[in-house]
Amino acid sequence: MIIQSLAFYLFSIVIVASALMVISARNPVHSVLFLILAFFNSAGLFVLLGAEFLAMILVVVYVGAVAVLFLFVVMMLDINFAALREGFQQYLPLGAMVGLVLLIELGIIFGSWAIAPEVADLSSAPIPSDVTNTEALGRLIYTDYIYFFQAAGMVLLVAMIGAIVLTHRSRPGVRKQRIGEQVARRPSDTIEVRKVPTGGGI
């Protein structure tokens, strides 16, 4: 248990620290790298909870896809971050004050948090032992939460359509591969075998 606790605090501290670095680092590339660090540690927390499937998904999706995409975007778009921060000093006092007020208030609220007595038991045995993590998730998703799952699917569909609609342009004059046509081509369509008399030319 002690090791678990130590690991929990280690991961947590690293997450909070790297999250802070994400928003405070001057170099945007560093920010993304800190984000990746935070993802990794979050995955660690999932592992601690016994949710190894989620941990892996987090690493694969967020680190492997999202964060890398961010990195590309940051490096490809030459954004002048210094210019974006220009008003920062000006708005800092007011913003900080509002943020502080909200923070204190939320602190008060969480101070009133009451933990149900059965929570400790539930968290120590989060998963049925006879099924694997993945299987358990699958059962829930395709039964009780089928509606949410399908709805999320629709959301993703819209995201996809949106991305295509807003960015896809059909440029005329661009040579494209047409796999079907290429595969369907027969030698007879393109190749003509001629008997060439020696020294006669075509």
Binding site: Y91, L94, G95, V98, V101, L102, E105
Partner: peptide, 20 residues
Amino acid sequence: LYHYAFAMLLGVAILVTWFL
């Protein structure tokens, strides 16, 4: 944009403060 966002957050902060 950040003015707009700030107005939203300010609104939330005021309402939360009101209730507290």
